[in-house]
Nucleic acid binder design. Sequence first.
DNA 1: TTTAAACACTCAACCGTTTTCGTAAAAACT
DNA 2: AGTTTTTACGAAAACGGTTGAGTGTTTAAA
Lengths: 340, 340
Amino acid sequence: MKKRVTLKQIATELDVSVSTVSKALRNSKEIGQDTKDKIQAFAKFYNYKPNSIAISLQNRKTKNIGVIIPEIVHHFFTTVVSGIEKVANEAGYNVIVCLSDESFDKEVINMETLANSSIDGFIISLSKDTQKRKDFHHLREAINQGMPLVMFDRVSDEIYCDKVIVDDAQGAYKAVKYLLDTGCKRIALISTTDYLSVGKLRTMGYKNALADFGIPFEENLIVKIDDINFCQEPIAELFEREKFDGVLSVNEIFAVSAMREAIQRGFKIPEDISFIGFTDGMLSKHFYPRLTTVNQHGLQMGEIAARMLINKLEELEDDENYHTEVLKTTIVERESTRPY
Amino acid sequence: MKKRVTLKQIATELDVSVSTVSKALRNSKEIGQDTKDKIQAFAKFYNYKPNSIAISLQNRKTKNIGVIIPEIVHHFFTTVVSGIEKVANEAGYNVIVCLSDESFDKEVINMETLANSSIDGFIISLSKDTQKRKDFHHLREAINQGMPLVMFDRVSDEIYCDKVIVDDAQGAYKAVKYLLDTGCKRIALISTTDYLSVGKLRTMGYKNALADFGIPFEENLIVKIDDINFCQEPIAELFEREKFDGVLSVNEIFAVSAMREAIQRGFKIPEDISFIGFTDGMLSKHFYPRLTTVNQHGLQMGEIAARMLINKLEELEDDENYHTEVLKTTIVERESTRPY
DNA sequence: TTTAAACACTCAACCGTTTTCGTAAAAACT
DNA sequence: AGTTTTTACGAAAACGGTTGAGTGTTTAAA
C-alpha cells in the first residue's frame, strides 16, 4: 500500500523547493526546462495527483454540485439526475446526491450539511412536505450565502432563482385535446392531492382544455389520490360511478392501474376507453397495451438545470438575473389511444 | 449576501486568538467559562459553521463516499443507492454518485477523479464493459492506495475486497423449482449474453434445477438477448419455435415482453403459461397480470454495502480481512404464476 | 564597462481548521 | 516569601497546495 505522493515529498526527494515543484508541474515559464523535465518525469513515475481538498481550500471551489431530490427510486427524477451528471461531468464537476425522502426536515438537514463548503451550488426539487408547509427559509439562506441554486420541476414562486420546469398545464391541455380529437367525449382525470404544484397545474390544464372545447366540467370525473400505494380502490369507484371514454392520469402508475381496472371490466383499449399518462417511464413503454404519455423530458431538464448552475458558478461578475426555462411537453403516441 | 464567518474573523472581532476560538467552540476545558460563553454566543449569532474542506484537509477524511453504478435510470440500482444513502447519512456521510454508463473508460475516469481525495471509500457495481474486458487495474490501484472498496451485485473474483451479492444461481433455482412445483413441465429461459456475471449465474441455477428434478436440458429453450431494446423479436421466435408452459426471465423487461407475446398469441396467464422474472420493480408490481418475481433485496444490499464500507473506514487498525455477504433471494408471488 | 533585463528559483503568505507546546498570571501549597 | 500547580490563553506547525514578491546569477543591451 503506497500512499499518494505530495509536492513536499517530491521537493525533498529532488532537492528543490515546494513552489518549484508546483510551478514545474503547472508548466510555469518561471522554471527552467531541464528542472521541469526532471520534476515532471518524477511526478509521473510516482503517479502524483494533486490533492483536490487542498485545492478546494485554496480557491474556495469544490467542483462538486449538490442535487437534492425527494426520491431516487423514481423514473423521472433519475432521468433528471442522468442529465445533470452528464453535463456536470463534462464540465469537471462531481454530483453529490441527497434524498429528502419527501420530508422537509431531511431536506433542510441535507442542505445545511452540503452548504458547509462541500459544494459550489445546488440543484433541487422540493419535497412534498416542503411544498405543503411552504417554508423555504433553507433555500433563502443558501442564496443569501451566495450559493447558487437551481430548482427544477417542483419549484416555488416565492424563491427568486433559476428554474427549469415543464409546462405541466399545457401538457395536460394537449393530452385532453388529443383525446378529444381522437373521438373521446367524456374524459376522467386521475390526479394527486392539490398541494403538489404539478398536480394542481395539470388539473388546471385539464379544465382549461375542457372549457376551450366547450365541454362542461364535472367534478365527479376527477379522482384525487393521496397515497400512491392505494390507488386501485378509488379508481374502481370511479369506474363504478361514472361512464367515460378517455382518461388522463397525472402519472404512469395511476394510468396503468386504471387500464387494469378497465381491462378487468371488459373494456377494450383504446376502442372503448383511451388512456394518457404523464411520466414516460418503464410502465408506459412496456405495459400491455403500451401507454400514450406526456413526456416531461427529464433528461433535458437535468441538462439545462446543470448548465444553468454551472454558468452561474463560472461567470465572473455575478449577475442577479434569474430566469425560468419552461420545457414543452410532447405526446408519445402508443397503443392506449386511437391514432390521431 | 453575508459570507460565512471564519474562526479568524471571530478571533479578531473578539480580540482573542484563533486557537482560543477553536477550543472554545469545541468546549475545551482549557478555556475559561466566561470566554467560552462569549465566543459561543458570538458564533451562534453569526451562525458560524466550520468549513468542512479545511477539516477534511486537516484529518484527511472527507466524510464522502463514492458510489459508482452503471446506470441510474434503473430500478435495482436506485434501490441499492437508496439503501446506501440511508446508512451513509445516519453515519454522517455524503454520497457522491457517478455513472459509468456501462463503459469501462468512464468507470476508470470516475474512479480516478474521486480517488483524488474527494472520498474516503468506494462502493461500486461493475459496468458491462469492465466485466467483458476483465480489466480491473483501476480497482487494484484504489485498493493499493489504501482506499477501502466494497463491490455489489456485479463483482469480480479477481479483486480481493468486501462484497455483497445475491445468490443469483439459487434464486433462479428456486424460481424453476417454483414453476415445476406449480405444475409446469417445460420451462424456457430468457437471459442475457453470458459475459455478465449475473446472466451466467442465473442460467446456471436454471440448469441445476432442471438437472435436480430430472428434466432434460434443451438448449433450444434458452434465448439470449443482447440488446434490451430489441427483445421482442427473439422472444417471438421462441414462441414460434417451441412449446412451453413456464418462463423464467433474467429481468422484468424480458418477462413482460414475453407476457405480452403470450397474451397476443392467445395464451392465458398463468393457466397456459406461468412467468417468473428477476428484479422486483415497477413493471412487476403493476403489469397486468402482476409478475411473480425473484426479489434481489436491493435496499438491503445497499445498506449492507454501506455498513461494510463505513466499518472499514472507522475501524482503528485496518484488518485485511474481507468478506462476501450473500443475500438470499425471495420469491414474490403474484398473478403470473399458479398458487403454490 | 556599466546597467538592465532575463532567467531560475526560493520565501513566505494564504486558504480554515486542529492541536501540541509554551508561558504568564493566579492560586495553592510549603 | 518561595515554590509548585493550575488556569487560561497564545504562538506556531501542520494538512497540501498556489502565487506574488524577492534574490542571486547570467546574459544582452547601452
